[in-house]
Amino acid sequence: MTTETTPAAVTMPASPRPPLRERLGDNKILGFLGRLIVQRPLGAFGAAICVLLLLTGIFADVIAPEGYNHINPIDRLKPPSAEYWLGTDQLGRDVFSRIVHGAQLSVIVAFAATSLSIVISAVIGITSGYFGGRFDMVSQRVVDGWMCFPDLIILIVAVSVLGPGTWQVIVILGLLFGISGSRIVRSSVLSVKQNVYIHAAQSMGASTLRILVMHILPNVMAPIIVLFTTRLAAVILAESGLSFLGLGIPPPAPSWGGMLSLDGRSYMFQAPWLAIIPGVALTIAVFGINMFGDALRDMLDPRMRGAGAGRYVAAVRRDRPSSRARQAGGASQ
């Protein structure tokens, strides 16, 4: 299987493609999934977690046995049981239901805020990196200035101005991560810009917009995807952190961070599941997203689709000549 999916044919275009790729090649999604499972099992596991998270978020109302704020005054601080799978909190609310609804909230906040941040990063990073010169100089100094303030201070100020609430959290986190992320996009634009094919597109007479969209953007997609997935995880954590500090989404909304802080911390010793369960949920979600993101980045690069081992020989030749020269000189390592 493995040899078939890392096609040997790639380096020798004249020979036919391997069978597996042909069979799955008709359906792009199926083919992608097939390669994901075979080449990146951990990534596939991450993808499964992401899908589970998404489905839980979408169908929260169906899955959860109770509403997130349904209070059962008699069953307060009940440990996990057949009736309450993950126990109940100090108000007798079903923790399982709250986790499920919390997934919905997390998914909404995470995707909205991350998408916003990626758009901001891409726009600032690509324009600043591609145009360079004075424009780059000014925009980067603005970014510098913004990044001088600790995140937490910006968050606290922004929340105190805008007030707590779901959309406020989305805007603040999107802006915060977007501006700092523009640095990463810019630096990869700077290196992509050096490529001869960019020169080729310019000398061909392609418009700036075309170069940005057709050549620069696809070639900085890898860092953008990494940015997206790490930021997705970071936003979930940041939102939890904000809620933990009481600056996020106000109760009774079941934010995982809020659950961890308000309920978990106060009853840590009487009812440890109140802290453990949202913590585990957070960990699994962040882990899954990160694994999936890494795999996605590699799979989307056409060069990684069964890279020919011939590249290794080429890589050897480029392999840090100065250290190689030292080695050849007999220097001890």
């Binding site: 000549p321 190689r324 020269a325 080695q327 050849a328 000189g329 007999g330 220097a331 001890s332």
Partner: peptide
């Protein structure tokens, strides 16, 4: 290591 750079030396392209 006592041979490299001593009895046999290399010159590289770059």
């Amino acid at each position: 290591r006592s041979v490299r750079g001593n009895e046999i030396a290399m010159i590289f392209q770059e």
